[in-house]
Amino acid sequence: MAEGLKKKGTVKSLSSLFPPEETQKASERVRDTIAERHEELQQLKSFISDNTNLVNLVRTLPNELNHQIMVPFGKAAFFPGQLIHTNEFMVLLGDGYYAERTSKQTVEILKRRGNILESQVESLKADIQDLKTEASFFENEAGRKDLVEIVEDYEEESSLQEVSKAGDSKADFASSTEAESKGTGNEGDEYARIFSRIAELEKEEEEAEKDEDDEDEENEDDIDHSVNQDSVDQESISCGVDGSKLLPVYQDGSSQDGTPASSKPRFTESSIKPPVRKENVRAPAVTKEEVFVRTSEPSTNSSKAFTGSIVEHTRNLETNPREPSVAHSSKPVSRFRMNRK
């Protein structure tokens, strides 16, 4: 899960894989909460209708001097009776307090209560909306194999330079670990990582841009999408074809049990673009195509992507620091852990 880059040990690119069961669990939990909220909403709505019924009743009662009614007596019996004093109500204000009120005053109290209920309904609806977006994340994004999760130490920014100098040999390795990391995750974390990573890479990207203009053009879109949470789907679509094929490959890659197919492309890729150090972090280079897209993303430091990342950047930085705690274990250890999972 963790990878200490050989360079100085100060730089670690940490990536973690959230197993599909976890995502499933998470989405289930979110869905459960949504169901719960819906129940609450239903309850509130029934309260509201009760309230309006009561308002109507209270309003009409004083229309007559008295009403002929059946008075409940015990559980099962009724006897005929009369309602008198039809304009006097004993209203429960809550917590055991009652007040004597006229019909009109009672209606006012009831209306105030109705307003409170309405506001509760509104907040509940907003809540449900939020949860739905969360659920859609788990369903659409978290399970996808073509998204990378990038976890890094906060300090990396300073040490980044070293890494970029460090060069390609590590790149292969890093990219392979990256492959493991892709996929599921906390939405917040994932995006935070991606964004912060992008931001960190900006300097380098400018460099890289020079080298790889052609690729940039192709992949500009990708960056934009990844930057924008809502549009991540589209990104996936673009790589989706590869992704489906790649599934098995990824697994191999993650375990790193010598999968020639997956590893070869990686190497080639890395060798192709030595200057672009970002690919390690960014790219789950599994197939050539995949690698291609991924690697180019970072380099696509087109102004568009740039600005996008800036917007989110600060937020990411905040969330980032807690990542390091996940692990800085040496590579072999991380592999074991992966296997175990």
Binding site: L93, G94, D95, G96, Y97, A99, R112, I116
Partner: peptide, 17 residues
């Protein structure tokens, strides 16, 4: 809520607990 309602009552209102 109770306090709000109580504040809204006139001084001569009958209140019971």
């Amino acid at each position: 809520l109770v306090l709000k309602e109580l504040e809204l009552l006139k001084e001569d209102a009958n209140v019971y607990k």
